[in-house]
Design a protein around this nucleic acid. Structure first.
Lengths: 193, 193
DNA sequence: GTTTTTGTTGATTGACGAGTCAATAAACTT
DNA sequence: AAGTTTATTGACTCGTCAATCAACAAAAAC
């Protein structure tokens, strides 16, 4: 009984189910059937809309990165000074929408996917470059020439805190994650000499 | 033509081949046959010695963690002061033996494996705890109460730099990786107030 | 010199899973 | 109302792969 206009709903449901399934399984070795079942449809329909498992994964990854970007942009919207913008980027990175168990686990898996799938690699690089560029831009007036190195350090630290959260048992501790990254930033911002 | 005493040689060859194969493929989705071929034997023999693919992976992971531990211990052996020991741990983490493309990629994949395989999880936790404990111990006399947070930060940063290296194209830049982590450490060690 | 242990593999089994297809049905179009 | 487009699925194909097995070979033990 086809209600028309199902496509976008189905696609969204599949993306959501993919993140959940991969997140729960902690692995990309999940079947299209599992994902489809979770999204309330047959695996044939999933293939009908996405063509391949690969495309399903890519769509899920895009969704995660888009959400992350929106989260950061949201945090950024109210900030004006360089320092407050910097802190907004950091805290946006750990916003509740992104910093959730399944999402983090899925993130880690997509990181691995980027080693194999060129398109996934490209997506991740875009995100990394944008993040670093944002950080560098705000850091420049605060730490001058060290901006590049600090931006890279911050980016790596954020990733590190993320994947450690994937492994920690229990719900990810947003406050603590934020504290670690914030302290790093605080130290770097204490201008000397 | 069986030369006796083949077992340890075969096992080592399989472990090496596993790290290489996983590292090159950038994925755990490699077949036992691929690994075995690379190690110069039939897949049946691989199963004969390890029983299952899972056990092969675990042995490879143990090997990586053991090498890493040895590398750190080696760097530590010549250091005496708390600060030099701290720096030894950090630079040991990026020793040429561990900080190599395939190894890093394999590491990342084993990180993912730890989400699925309890034994892999256990191994990784042991490594993490030992690292943090070492760092904390050397940090205590230098940064006092902040030792715990700094140790966690350092651990996360090291992991972050590692996985970023897995994704960077070209050979991993040890000097740069070291520089980032060292700068973090420098900032934290600049005692104030 | 026969039996046992260790090493080794080709062939096979059995399961699983991505992707396809034919068929069915409800909407929209003309 | 006939035809077209969109939605949907059960059944099937085809490939892959972990794991097992039967068999063979050489060294060691007896």
């Amino acid at each position: 009984m086809p209600k028309l206009g199902a496509e976008p709903i189905r696609r969204a449901a599949l993306v959501k189910a993919t993140i959940e399934t991969v997140g729960e399984a902690g692995s990309l070795e999940v079947t299209v059937a599992q994902i489809a079942r979770r999204a309330g449809m047959s695996s044939a329909l999933a293939h009908h809309y996405f063509g391949s498992k690969e495309q399903i994964f890519l769509a899920a990854m895009r969704s995660i990165l888009t959400l992350y970007g929106a989260e950061v942009r949201g945090a950024l919207s109210t900030a004006t000074t360089a320092e407050s913008r910097l802190r907004a980027i950091v805290s946006g990175s750990f916003a509740p929408g992104s910093f959730r168990r399944e999402t983090i686990s899925a993130w880690l898996n997509f990181y691995v996917l980027a080693q194999t799938l060129p398109e996934a690699y490209r997506l991740l690089r875009v995100y990394q470059r944008r993040l670093r560029s944002n950080l560098r831009h705000e850091l420049r007036p605060l730490v001058g020439a060290r901006a590049e190195a600090v931006a890279r350090g911050l980016g790596a630290l954020i990733d590190g805190v993320y994947i450690r959260a994937a492994l920690a048992d229990g719900a990810p501790d947003r406050a603590y994650a934020l504290k670690i990254v914030t302290e790093y930033l605080d130290r770097e911002l204490e201008v000397r000499e």
